[in-house]
Design a protein around this nucleic acid. Sequence first.
DNA 1: TCTGGGGTCCTAGGACCC
DNA 2: TCTGGGGTCCTAGGACCC
Length: 431
Amino acid sequence: MNKVFALVDCNNFYVSCERVFNPKLEGKPVIVLSNNDGCAVARSEEAKALIPMGAPAHLYQDVIKKHNIAVYSSNYTLYSDMSERVMGILSQFTPEIEIYSIDEAFLNLTGFINYNLTEYAKEIRATVKKWTGIPTSIGIGSTKTLAKIANKLAKKNRMCGGVFDITAHPRQDDFLRSVDVEDIWGVGRQYANLLKRNGINTAFDLKNAPDHWIKKNMSIVGLRTVWELRGIPCIELEEVAEPNKQIIRSRSFGKPVESLEELKEAVSAHASRASEKLREQGLVASYISTFIETNRFKPEDPQYGNSSGCNLPEPTSYSPELIKYAIANLERIYKQGYRYKRAGVVLMGLVPQDQIQLSLMHSARPYSRDKALMNSIDSINSHWGSDTIRLAACGIKQAWQMRRARLSRRFTTNWNELQNVKASFPNYFSL
DNA sequence: TCTGGGGTCCTAGGACCC
DNA sequence: TCTGGGGTCCTAGGACCC
């Protein structure tokens, strides 16, 4: 039996989140910046003609001023919470859902094949919009790759009301001819160039490309994409997220950092956040590495970057232990006289905590106490906001912290930052 | 002053072993 | 005269995704 996948994608997600809590932004150009207020990572429809995706904000100050573009720092606390709400609603429409990213989910609609799928998808859209305020687009196809393409077409065609079911059209190929090869899921810039040099310009061309050539030039991954375009599912729905294979925590600094002391603080903070993530997933790490680098966008500054890692004596998720080794790594690679832009920590060799119990029995450390301490800190931070309690090594002033000059409030997760609604306010939040 | 951050998978090639 | 070859493991690098 043919399968049916839907891809639900939140439109301009970060911008839409800001608009939910600030309806005055409706109809106006809005952008949301990456960490450190670096580049534009989300743009409203009105802003798309003015600011390219990924554009460094500081190069577009004139445009921003001229068109009165509203600019926001990334507020991940808000976006993550809104994402959870959206995903919760989607789960009510099908038991099989894969949360693919913060703003996208695949649904398996195979069991709904006797429904009018387009109508069903429209109902999903309407519910998400009504309950969260977030607009979505939904694409439907017989493979995940085709559902992705259908989603693009849903966004492109104003006429289709946010939903496009490519399986409903007898002449799918006509649509595939209209899709540029670089807009296909799994085809990035490099492959797009290669394909075009070889006369493969559209999704239709790629669908009909010879298997052996694709395998040779784009590996088995590219071949899967081609088969998916032919309607043969090769990429399964992954309902249960696989555990992480590595955890990375890093940030560029709000200002250049030169001293070892400040780098130690930053590295400690990253190691601390990485271990939180580790505990959240019930994992322990057996390897930790630390990296630092200067600003590659400043070729006039002397450049240096390096990393160093080490195996841990025993796999652990205990923050002070991980901080200790992260700093030891740092001391091995730190060189004086450079203006550092970024530092980070990578945890690898991740294994479930319960798989190492045996070796813990042989250890001299009082693990139950370590664990109780981490549990307490984690639960306080999750209740009162992250960083309510942090280890002293992470510093107090944290002068290296990233810039977030234009941050909106944490409307949904912090009691002190709730939205105020006056009685005379129009009934915007229709529950 | 000013350019994000966090992931995955695949392949080629070297080291090593027998 | 004639100088192997296959398997495994690991890593670096390159591609991709959001």
